[in-house]
Design a protein around this nucleic acid. Structure first.
Length: 480
RNA sequence: CGGGGCGUGGCUCAGCCUGGUAGAGCGCCUGGUUCGGGACCAGGAGGCCGGAGGUUCGAAUCCUCUCGCCCCGACCA
């Protein structure tokens, strides 16, 4: 009996996560480039599902895809003071090309606000050019000091939306619209509950007026920022001189937004649903939803079983594991680790009785059913799994969200929490949105995740640090 | 970037302290028996020990530098 190569969550959550990523054939460290990973077919397929789900919604809300240069003139970054200050430490810079030193270095994009600003200024003259609603699917590089597969890697894949509007109100509507799209994909497709909210001023995107985020809770109770949407105000408009003439003939700067989600979502997906046996994918995220493991001994059995398997596979769109030289048991483990939602077992006994064994990945429940009922059963099971996985995650979020009324209390709850040991909570507390207060929270390595858009608690109260009256509680947690 | 740990067949690791031309288990290949939760037997292939330099008659082993991975911290849409 071989031991599971996956470290139990209880023992070391961080190691468990890595084991699941590798054993699930999602990705592996590139090793030849610092902080980079190789996304393997099983992982990239998940990204493709996400891309499809997101892109469909972007198009439905009027956006078009574009592609902008990977390299950005260094001077562009410097045009927005806060932006350059925020990103400078993590930039990779190209200084040589074509065999000689460049007059002006190029920065490998960490994000494209600056280059978008440049092109917006070329493309926008009139209010008739607005709104301009663009999105880019791309890779970016940020030289982070500490990386973890999917959660934070030097190079990662993402989409960045960039829009320009004639009024601040309209831009704000866009910011919230896209935040809602992110929340919908997270909850309805990934079965990953999120809290929508505003980032504090200290935590906002470098160069934005305000940032909004969706925050989700991983199984160790740590928060993961799953997506962000920024109200850029006129900051980049002014820095890149993006002006338009209004109906009234007046010149004004555009109001911009930007929003993005990345391959980090895959890390969130894994840490929300997977278990000690490996990856668990919600049906909507699984590119391969049903796999049939045929069981037989002799050749005559093989013929009968394979024939029945082919028929069932066609009926429910399943993949048949025809690999030779692997026992059925080995095949069960194989698909279990890769998170396939439903595995069907089909052997001579089942064929003789007209049955098939259906097994759910999330609960491990096994059931013998008549083959005639399979199609309906599969559809019903996939739906139930999607629903149940969301409920379970939602319940966990609720169970691990607590209220605190003093800074000491917050600290006591979060002090010992680590990514490895877990025990994390979302602590709801009244806190004034002031960088000094963020600093106080940071002392015990936690942070304000966001200020929820919908207050599900007790409304106004006194700030746990300054004692000032604030409108509502904020989410404080340790995070990735 | 600071502190700690670690790089040896595909994987996990032993060997290193006390230098003397590389080992185990798993995996892989072939054949046979198996096959309802990681099968077994037999035979076989595969590594110059992360990389570079140094010390030495001789380096996986000692020294220096370097690259990468993991953990803690700092940093971080």
């Amino acid at each position: 009996m071989a031991e599971s190569p996956i470290t139990p969550r209880e023992k070391d959550f961080a190691t468990w996560y890595q084991d699941v990523v590798i054993q699930g054939d999602m990705a592996e460290p590139a090793e030849i480039v610092k902080g980079c990973m190789v996304i393997k077919p099983n992982g990239y397929a998940v990204w493709e599902v996400l891309q499809r789900e997101l892109d469909t919604r972007f198009k439905a809300t009027g956006h078009q895809n574009v592609y902008l240069p990977l390299l950005i003139p260094e001077s562009f970054l410097k045009k927005e003071a806060e932006h350059v200050e925020g990103f400078s430490p993590e930039l990779a810079v190209v200084t040589h090309a074509g065999g000689k030193k460049l007059e002006e270095p190029y920065v490998i994009r960490p994000t494209s606000e600056t280059i978008v600003g440049h092109f917006f200024s070329k493309w926008i003259q009139s209010h008739r050019d607005l709104p301009m609603l663009l999105n880019q699917w791309a890779n970016v590089i940020r030289w982070e000091l500490r990386t973890r597969m999917f959660l934070r890697t030097t190079e990662f894949l993402w989409q960045e939306g960039h829009t320009a509007h004639s009024t601040h109100e309209e831009a704000l509507e866009e910011v919230i619209r896209m935040l809602d799209v992110y929340a919908e994909v997270a909850e309805d497709v990934m079965a990953m509950p999120v809290i929508k909210g505003v980032k504090t001023r200290a935590e906002k995107f470098a160069g934005a007026l305000r940032s909004y985020s969706i925050e989700s809770m991983m199984q160790n109770g740590l928060a993961l920022q799953a997506g962000t949407s920024h109200d850029l105000g006129q900051n980049f408009g002014k820095a890149f001189d993006v002006q338009f003439q209004s109906k009234e003939g007046k010149l004004d700067y555009v109001w911009q937004t930007s929003w993005g989600v990345s391959t980090r979502l895959i890390g969130g997906l894994i840490m929300t649903h997977s278990d000690d046996k490996g990856l668990v994918l919600p049906p909507k995220m699984a590119h391969r939803k049903v796999v049939i493991v045929p069981i037989f001994r002799k050749d005559d059995e093989k013929g009968i079983v394979m024939e029945a398997a082919a028929k069932l596979a066609k009926e429910v769109g399943a993949h048949i594991d025809t690999r030779e030289g692997h026992s059925p048991g080995a095949k069960f483990f194989h698909w279990e680790r890769r998170g396939v939602p439903i595995v069907l077992e089909l052997g001579p006994r089942d064929v003789a009785a007209g049955n098939v064994v259906i097994k759910r990945r999330d609960t491990g429940t096994k059931e013998i059913i008549p083959q005639t009922e399979l199609a309906a059963k599969v559809a019903e099971t996939l739906e139930a799994m999607q629903r149940d996985m969301f409920s379970k995650a939602k319940q966990r979020l609720q169970d691990n969200t607590v209220v605190a009324n003093s800074i000491g209390e917050v600290r006591e709850i979060l002090d010992d929490v680590t990514a490895e040991k877990g025990g994390g909570k979302f602590v709801m507390a009244h806190l004034k949105d002031d960088p000094a207060n963020d600093g106080a929270i940071k002392e015990f390595r936690a942070s304000v995740r966001n200020i929820p858009l919908v207050d599900e608690y007790d409304g106004p109260g006194k700030c746990i640090i300054t004692g000032e009256e604030v409108a509502q509680r904020v989410v404080i947690a340790k995070s990735y």
